[in-house]
Design a protein around this nucleic acid. Structure first.
Lengths: 217, 217, 217, 217
DNA sequence: TATGAATGAGCATTCATTCAT
DNA sequence: AATGAATGAATGCTCATTCAT
């Protein structure tokens, strides 16, 4: 019952920024490969339809070997989910931090773009998270509720600040608005192939324009 | 190979509204119960995570009995998916047919409302469809692509007419707009419990307002 | 536990000769249809691979209806087996009874012919019996051992008489000979389509010639 | 779809004689155990009446483990069938190759003996093949038709050579003769327990004598 | 006289998981 | 650091059987 867990770099708080090539051991690489394969397959097929054998095949290891790195399929999901949300969240925060002194509308525009980038990026972590979270059993959702709520609150603040600054009409209720905006963004995963250069940026600008200005003449 | 499939109600065009108690045979009731249970579970957990035993339990029959009515789990999904899309589609078309001579914006507002109603209705067929379709393997998606495309084109026409009538800015590209709007609507399934009276109508109005007028002051 | 068994004409001792058209009720016809369908399918696919649904389909009734006529699948087999052996046995006995005063070799020749006729006849009862008996579980074989042994003993007498009359070499052991002869005959089911006119007669004559005269120059 | 099937011994041409204990890995042993158990049960009960659980029990492994070695029940059958026919075929060919310069009748006598040996040997592969092949559905028979035909042609040549050398009467048709002979041999499986020493040889000699010299005085 | 509806035990198969090496 | 071999619980599905009508 006391399970292994040797090759972790510290649970879920691994500084994944340094994973690229530096000292990433072979072991580290296998771990990453498993996670990336899992994310890709979860995204495409959902959690339950994805087998460990598929993940192993894609990661080019043996199914049994997965258990050297992870305690269970659930544990892989956990990390994929976590990574996925952290990527959008960090992406959005970073973008806004880098921006100088800009209007609230411009801030929201940047957040939209960063959210879309995370979603349509090469990696599948964020899109996997967005796509499968809703259908997961309570047991698997539970641990991630906190971060998700934090992200939602982050957007709420973004919108609230804009409203206080009179850049959003005062009769707009913010929570439904946030759901509306994030829904529209998230759903693009189901339709769009935004791998082409600048496609994400273009979509982001269009979305921002509709949300602020509306579509009417 | 050529057995079973006796108890069908005659294709997919059954008026399922009158199923309650009227003259629906006992057989028909079981069939409906299976479909409704399946829809509910598919919606909640996805297709692959839902077992026939769960469906049977919810329908209060024995797992083996399902095969008296359906050839396979896939066949159940097929019918749930079909029913689900037909319900939104019919709902939207009916709403617009009933409306008299109204503006394009009003038409779109009605379509939004009807779409949301189908999604948050008592029945889970539409929401199941919307939620799980994207993760299904090709084999299961295939047969439904046509109807889905037809529905998309229906919205495109709605928007196109509005644009021609100068009720939508001419610089707006319509296909991204349609994806944007339907995405925002579909995503509400993930967040909202709109079972409260008028909640759907209120959300519909809010959504329409944002889309047309935008959120800015 | 006290099972039905209404439409039997007296267990296994039914005078099946009068079944043709005379007073055979509709019920009787269904019974026969079930048995004939079962015999055909058992012969082709074996007992265990044949489903009641297949039998019902071929007999053009509903699967459930079989239980109006028979207590179980086993009971059908029982009757098919019985009928099958009785048909060869009666066929051979009848042929020999009709024959006048002939040599032992001629008698055996007639027995060979009658055995082959029963085997390749329109009806599948005998061939089903021959083909599937060996693979049946003890429980199903048991009740038929007696008749089978009786038939074997009948042939043994036939051969023994011939040997006593010096028409078979005295150094030939009769039981292996019987097995050899019946084996050769029975195996034809696996290879030959003897539905063509006179094919059976021709094969019978050839077989008799080999057995008595041998193949050598 | 493209997983498993690792532990093969390299196609079907493995010299299975050396499997006993020599260097056969543990894995190899399990594979053999499955095949041998399957052959024994198929022979006794037929294909469809044999369950994987029975095979697993006899092989002293868990039912699920079978799938580590075989893709399906059908795949096991395939290999059993193949092995079974190869054993007789090789047995007969080997016997004849070892024989020096002998008469055609003596050659046929040896072939009869080798065929009977394969059939009544410790292993059940050949007898399983002979017994169940006829009742198999097309799908399972198909792949083995070629080898079976090759074996039949081999016998045809044996007989044809004998006839050309005037050791078989010229009025004998060879194909029916082959069927007759092989039928007589094959059928012994249904009756005889030839495990006793020399029983097979004795039967072989008797059979050859009847076929060539006939039974008449 | 028959059947439509339903059952439940059992089947082949899958898959997350284990563990000796 | 990783795997080959094996497990066993659970899955979708089949089928002989039941029984009210």
């Amino acid at each position: 019952m006391t399970r292994r867990r040797r090759p972790t770099t510290g649970g879920n708080t691994v500084p994944r920024e340094m994973t690229d090539a530096t000292n990433a051991s072979k072991s580290q690489k296998s771990r990453e490969a498993i996670l990336e394969s899992a994310a890709k397959l979860f995204r495409r097929q959902g959690y339950s339809a994805t087998t460990l054998r598929q993940i192993a095949d894609l990661a080019e290891i043996q199914a049994g070997s997965i258990y050297y790195y992870f305690d269970s399929k659930d544990a892989i999901l956990d990390e994929v989910l976590d990574e996925g949300l952290r990527r959008v969240f960090n992406g959005v925060k970073l973008k806004l931090k880098q921006a100088g002194d800009i209007s609230h509308r411009q801030k929201i525009a940047l957040a939209i773009e960063a959210h879309l980038v995370a979603l349509h990026d090469a990696s599948d972590f964020t899109s996997a998270n967005i796509r499968i979270y809703g259908q997961l059993p309570e047991r698997l959702k539970g641990p991630h509720r906190a971060i998700r709520r934090a992200y939602a609150r982050y957007w709420d603040r973004l919108l609230s600040n804009a409203q206080k600054a009179d850049e959003i009409r005062s009769d707009i209720e913010l929570i439904p608005l946030r759901i509306f905006v994030l829904g529209a963004l998230n759903w693009t995963v189901e339709w769009f192939d935004l791998s082409k250069k600048d496609a994400v940026q273009k979509l982001a600008r269009r979305t921002e324009s509709i949300i602020f200005d509306g579509v009417k003449r």
